[in-house]
Design a protein around this nucleic acid. Structure first.
Lengths: 310, 310
DNA sequence: CAGCCCCGATAACGTTAGGGTATCGTGATG
DNA sequence: CATCACGATACCCTAACGTTATCGGGGCTG
């Protein structure tokens, strides 16, 4: 069976056109080299060298075989290096997801841009999935990591990196009567139609909101469930009711929605980058450590801005 | 050092994702296979397989390495087959030369076309060289074979295949007085200016013509030497004198030259395909045997046509 | 022409990479 | 709990590969 050794030896002989010199170059003895060439020729059943009394020369077949051999050797070392680089995560594909809130955060473009610059050979595949869908994809292995929101104390079995925090605030149309009140409390929402996150998609948020309302003695009047942030925004703008949104959505102000915090509602959530502990994509480590480095110093800044808002 | 065995074994394991099945497929024992894979990973310093308690799976690096390995294996067998085909002359390059007479012969297109059809992967490189230049190129090895003319009895050390015969005839302008004579002899050329082949290029022809003239008691009046057939034709047409051309040139009649045989001039030449006995281009054997096959039956036909002329 | 050198081809023998059998350890399974 | 499937080892053996020494022939030189 054709062997790498055959090829390497043949290339050396073909290049030196002299068994002795080729043997020196290969750090083997001349008879060993000679036998390998003989075996190679027997193996592929082709005379590769003309044996003339004064030395050797390549046959035509030997010349074209030499070309192919060089190519094969190059490809072997290239394959080796490539595998190593993939293993070290210097090249590869990384699937990253964002939920709707995370995708809107200021720091995200920074993360992505910095990563693309640092690891230009890692292809970033971005997905926009709700938190629950991210969890499923992470477990299924189709996703490497995801940016999502987690309620304080909500546990899961992923590795996580906190990159920011957020809070739930009230969203109402700009012309709603409540916008004129100086300060708002949960009890102000009594009898107001509410648009709530669908418990199917986001059970925890729904439950936390409802229990906060109950605790304040307010019976929520749920007008409609909405499947995602976009739906909530649209419904609020259409005047279907009020809703709770993350303060990160304040960029929506311009669109006719006003966000106001509630005195007695504190539902802190962390914006986290999460990934399965046993994800073996080496590129992931590069991504998480880069995000960590970039979000570490940005943290205090973040906190400042959060408190500055109201 | 990375080895073909490593690659073959890894491809099997990667495809089966099971050491035992892969070992069966490779006709080796499972431990032997296992060790090769372990060594391969150590060699390229990359983890190619995830060892889970329930079995193995490919790492990302393993997956891309698998692709490269398959490619390399394919290229190795391809290189082997290609070398063999080159050795058997099924693919390659063949340099064939024609002298001016040979290129004009009717059978040449037939040879070339038949060869191209029979061996489409052999690239035919055609060269138009005078006989002497062909000999030199054949010796230098830049030419595989050549069609040229040889005087009967003229020896050389090449292999040769006779593909036709020819004769020297007189060439004159159509309006020359001699065209009106019913039959011509060498003595008719006394006092006629003659255009002779340059002895430097074609000494034998020159010598044979001169000695034929001498033998007939005619003193040749050599007007000019010409380097090649084309030059002779042009000079005759220009009225510079008469010349001896091969009867194969009769297609020139239309150009204002008349060819007439001489009663007492017999300078038979053979049209031969010649090649060095130790030419190692395997494609050459295919060419010569094809030419032999095609010219064998055409030989009597050829002879008939030659005598039919005059 | 003898002697020498270069180079490919062999012979004889040691070393080791690679292969075989037997067996272990550990999750999965019924 | 017994069993199975599968990867990981231990241990031994063979054959492939390497080494040194030597041959034989062609070409060059004194």
């Amino acid at each position: 069976m054709l062997n790498t050794r055959h090829i390497r030896y043949f290339v050396a002989v073909a290049e030196e056109l002299n068994f002795h010199r080729a043997a020196v170059r290969l750090h083997v003895s001349q008879p060993a080299l000679w036998r390998q060439i003989r075996d190679l020729e027997a193996e592929i059943d082709v005379v590769l060298l003309n044996r003339d009394p004064r030395g050797i020369s390549l046959t035509r077949a030997g010349a074209v075989f030499l070309d192919d051999c060089r190519d094969i050797l190059e490809r072997m070392t290239a394959a080796q290096l490539k595998a190593r680089r993939v293993a070290q995560g210097e090249v590869g594909v990384l699937h990253i997801a964002f939920n709707e809130i995370a995708g809107r955060r200021r720091e995200m473009p920074r993360f992505l841009q910095a990563f693309r610059e640092a690891y230009p050979e890692i292809s970033l595949q971005l997905h926009f999935l709700m938190s629950q869908a991210q969890i499923e994809s992470l477990r299924a292995g189709t996703l490497d990591a995801g940016f999502l929101l987690r309620h304080r104390g909500e546990g899961h079995d992923f590795e996580a990196l906190r990159v920011g925090q957020d809070n739930f605030v009230l969203a109402m149309p700009r012309d709603h009567p409540l916008t004129r009140k100086a300060s708002l409390r949960l009890s102000d929402l009594a009898d107001q139609p509410l648009i709530m996150p669908n418990p199917r998609n986001n059970g925890i948020t729904h439950e936390k909101l409802v229990s906060a309302l109950r605790k304040s003695g307010t019976a929520p009047r749920i007008a409609q469930f909405a499947d995602n942030e976009n739906a909530i925004v649209n419904l609020v703008m259409a005047g279907m009711g009020l809703a709770f949104l993350n303060s990160s959505c304040r960029s929506l102000d311009a669109q006719g929605i006003m966000l106001r915090s509630l005195e007695d509602l504190s539902l802190p959530v962390d914006l986290e980058l999460v990934w399965p502990a046993r994800n073996r994509n080496p590129a992931l480590a590069h991504f998480t450590s880069l995000v960590k480095a970039l979000s570490g110093d940005a943290d205090q800044l973040e906190a400042l801005m959060e408190t500055g808002m109201g």
